[in-house]
Amino acid sequence: MIIPGYLDGYEPPILRSPLVDGSDLMSYAMFWPAFLATVGGAASAPDAFGVDPADLEQIVDLFLDADRWPVFSLPLAEGCRLHVVMRNYEDDGGVDYVLDPGTGDVSIPLAAMEGHFRGPAFAWQEVVAAAQQPDPDHTSAERLLLLVPACADSSRPNTAIDLIAEALTTLGARSGVRQLSEELLTSLRYWGPCRWADVDDVLVGLGSATHRRHGGDLSPEQLRLIAAALQPGDTGIKR
């Protein structure tokens, strides 16, 4: 699997891409408690899905395979794709959210979840809008829960907890669902609450660590493309 420009800059250079399509892992019964506990930083995820944390070890090992980095991908508007990459590079592991413009141009970094974190990637309204975009392979609940770990928004409505709880229930969570929903929305592992503002008709993050800052490390053209890609699709929600 190739994400344009994503593997550039490594020393020594990575000559053979370790990126692999992770969609098969999403069919595993343990996928969601494992993903939400690791990427989402939610310690309550195993209990909510009624599983022993020890039972997650096998799939977590697959998440962390140094030779095969799973990538979970979502189609977005404007021909873009959002990739959630389990970056299993030795001594530099983490989880990256990157936008592939779909034009052959280099991918755009949105968030890096690691010790030297960058983010958040999304405002709440963007997560909701992107979750509802047309997708032949993923439900809106799956899209929502893949996106929410990289979201932080101090202005999110109280109904956000209900929407996350509904998605969790749809995907098999049975107890402590609201607790897990709150944990996913308020995890402070990487960044705290972030304010967003409309600047030149695009949403930009006002947090010091986000890539999506006005006058930051992304160009105005890239910021406009991100904003366009995260808009609602033109069909109904697939559940």
Score class of each variant (00 low, 15 high):
residue 234 D to T: 15
residue 22 G to F: 02
residue 96 D to W: 11
residue 150 A to G: 15
residue 106 V to F: 06
residue 142 E to L: 00
residue 70 P to M: 00
residue 141 A to R: 07
residue 118 R to T: 07
residue 36 L to T: 07
residue 223 L to R: 11
residue 59 I to V: 10
residue 119 G to T: 10
residue 194 C to L: 01
residue 62 L to T: 05
residue 186 T to G: 10
residue 203 L to Q: 15
residue 170 T to F: 07
residue 86 M to T: 02
residue 158 N to Q: 13
residue 28 Y to R: 14
residue 121 A to R: 10
residue 166 E to M: 11
residue 133 Q to R: 13
residue 177 V to Q: 05
residue 136 P to D: 14
residue 173 A to M: 02
residue 208 S to T: 14
residue 34 A to E: 02
residue 142 E to C: 01
residue 83 H to Q: 07
residue 30 M to R: 13
residue 74 L to S: 11
residue 58 Q to N: 08
residue 24 D to K: 15
residue 166 E to N: 15
residue 148 V to N: 09
residue 138 H to W: 05
residue 13 P to A: 15
residue 148 V to T: 14
residue 31 F to G: 04
residue 89 Y to Q: 14
residue 199 V to I: 13
residue 48 A to R: 01
residue 137 D to A: 14
residue 163 L to A: 14
residue 167 A to K: 10
residue 236 G to L: 07
residue 59 I to P: 03
residue 40 G to R: 08
residue 115 G to Q: 08
residue 123 A to R: 14
residue 127 V to A: 12
residue 166 E to F: 09
residue 130 A to K: 05
residue 145 L to V: 03
residue 192 G to K: 12
residue 25 L to E: 08
residue 144 L to E: 03
residue 5 G to K: 09
residue 130 A to V: 01
residue 183 E to V: 04
residue 146 L to P: 02
residue 191 W to Y: 13
residue 88 N to P: 08
residue 69 W to I: 01
residue 107 S to E: 09
residue 145 L to Y: 03
residue 151 C to W: 06
residue 105 D to R: 15
residue 63 F to A: 02
residue 205 G to I: 01
residue 120 P to N: 01
residue 32 W to P: 03
residue 85 V to S: 04
residue 4 P to H: 08
residue 83 H to C: 06
residue 102 G to H: 06
residue 176 G to R: 10
residue 57 E to A: 15
residue 205 G to H: 05
residue 168 L to D: 03
residue 217 D to R: 15
residue 82 L to I: 04
residue 129 A to V: 03
residue 75 P to E: 03
residue 67 D to P: 00
residue 19 L to M: 05
residue 173 A to P: 02
residue 140 S to I: 01
residue 200 D to Q: 15
residue 216 G to A: 06
residue 216 G to D: 11
